[in-house]
Design a protein around this nucleic acid. Structure first.
Lengths: 327, 327
DNA sequence: GTGAAAGCGCTAACAC
DNA sequence: GTGTTAGCGCTTTCAC
């Protein structure tokens, strides 16, 4: 790979002038510019990001922290982040934390090292204290999960309202025995969606039964299936289920199918996220759509603005209840 | 963030000595080492990767090229790559190419810039000439898709054999009218799996009917559904389907369900990849398992060996036919 | 065993 | 408008 000096030599100018051409500084004559551009072309020169970073201490790399790449909920958000970032001249580094603090530490150090310019965190299990501390010094944005104390900028939806509307939808269909399959309540979204669920029940005078609330410890299909198995074995079996993610709902659906029960006649089912699978199940899944792609775009824009020193405001996006065959 | 000079100053030594301590060079006395380590600890010093890279021209970053993050087939492979890479002190940069040559160019430049030390490509639509050219100069490994001419090291499975066995399985069950839902044949795996399909049919004296081979142009659920719709509308309708990916098979299953046909009684169905969702469908999907996690691990090991200048051999991994309810 | 000095590739400040 | 110089943080000779 050619260096800036080789280009300078070939063009008969100094390295500084080549640098000016590359960075579109306007203090270069057209004649020189053309000579330099020719040399850059001939030598197939590409500026070394390393040299530039060291000098400017910027890397044009954004860290995106996710718990697991396998979760399709994140895919769309990442698409949005990526498109926006690339359009602004940034690349993204996708970091799977596996909820592992050691991995997190590696990625946190990357920003301290100036190997990355900022972080978009979608990881709910992240070490909150460390993240808040880091956010004092470096540009950090949270997407989906966020800190209620407002110490870190975020993009999210109104989880409580969304859950409330999903459950209200079931109630309006005449459902009276509505179960909740929730994620671990260390997740903010899990706590908020539970509140929405309870709010709807209370509002319509339905009892909140402890045994109809199942909290999973994992996020996979199996957890949803396991949850449904327990719910179906209850003496007073629910006739409708609100699951806080499509993955859990799809697992639940599997278990309902295995037991030869019909959806929605025997059990009505609502999921959350509108992942693409949710339209491939039989029956298709009623779910709550989050504007995931848009959320990704806005998170990236917000982070880049932060990096550039602009003030940014938190964003709460709209959601939408998608009614399909399962209710 | 403290620099190496501040550490040196605090410890009363030169920057060179600090560097020796960090890099475990043995030419440092224990006494000095301890003093330096203390200073590093006190100042919470972290070596700047930028400075180090520029000097050593290594970044300890591996590029992983995938067409789409949304495809669960890649998730497991990536897990394997990531675990292996991190254990060896490398981080990975997940690059979604979207089959877009411009994006590809960005990532190719990163390795020229020494911003990355090597590439694992899983992208079948990658610009082959460019990749081969790059592989002459830089460490590159292909996973799953590969060049038949052997110009680039690879990890893969025997796609033809796997497809052959899947179709033979259908034949042994008495199926005589077996359709193929294939991906775009620009993909090597698609061409190879088609060969396996045709080989099995020939071997058992079954006709290869043009109209029973449907080639999709996309990889999503919808394509599988669309393919099945066409196959079901044929006058001479097939009674079994081999789809070259679970995603396509799940789309096909959806269409079969919509038409109130039963699987496997009316239509038997085999997929490929054993993605986790393939066990959540009703009925569960017979499929071909690839050792995705292992493939990821081996790809990463292979690449790191290449980076270290070692010779590496191509690897063809074993697959396994997973017989479930759909056949 | 340790320090001084050079230099990786680049850009910004300052001359002219 | 362009060249010269210095320095980003680090590692690696080469002295001593």
């Amino acid at each position: 790979m050619a260096t800036i000096h080789e280009v300078a030599q070939k063009a008969g100018v100094s390295a500084a002038t080549v640098s000016r051409v590359i960075n579109n500084r306007n203090t270069v004559s057209d004649k020189t510019r053309i000579r330099v551009e020719q040399a850059i072309h001939d030598l197939e020169y590409e500026p070394s990001v390393l040299g530039r970073n060291l000098r400017n201490s910027e890397s044009r790399l954004l860290l995106v922290l996710i718990p697991s790449i396998s979760n399709p909920f994140y895919s769309e958000i990442i698409n949005g982040i990526e498109d926006t970032a690339i359009a602004q001249g940034y690349n993204i580094l996708l970091c799977e934390t596996d909820s592992n603090p050691d991995r997190e530490a590696i990625y946190f150090n990357m920003i301290r090292n100036r190997l990355a310019d900022g972080i978009i965190s979608m990881d709910p299990t992240v070490n909150k204290e460390k993240l808040i501390e880091l956010a004092n010094t470096y540009p950090i944005v949270q997407c989906s999960e966020y800190e209620k104390d407002g110490s870190i900028s975020f993009v999210t939806i109104d989880n409580e309202l969304a859950a409330y509307q999903a459950v209200r939808h079931l109630i309006k269909l005449g459902q009276k025995k509505i179960a909740l399959i929730n994620s671990d309540e260390k997740f903010l979204y899990a706590r908020e969606r539970r509140q929405g669920y309870e709010k709807a029940l209370r509002e319509f005078g339905l009892p909140i039964k402890h045994e109809w609330i199942y909290i999973t410890d994992q996020l996979g299909f199996q957890s949803g299936q396991q949850a449904m198995r327990v719910l179906l074995n209850l003496d007073d079996r629910p006739t409708a289920v609100f699951a806080v993610s499509d993955i859990l709902a799809i697992g639940a659906l599997k278990e309902i199918n295995i037991n030869d029960l019909r959806v929605p006649q025997d059990i009505a089912l609502v999921g959350f996220d509108k992942i693409s699978f949710s339209n491939m199940t039989h029956p298709t899944l009623t779910t709550v759509a989050q504007p995931m792609y848009k959320m990704g775009c806005l998170s990236a824009t917000m982070l880049i603005n932060k990096i550039r020193g602009k003030r940014v405001d938190n964003i709460v996006m709209d959601h939408e209840l998608i009614i399909r065959e399962s209710t």
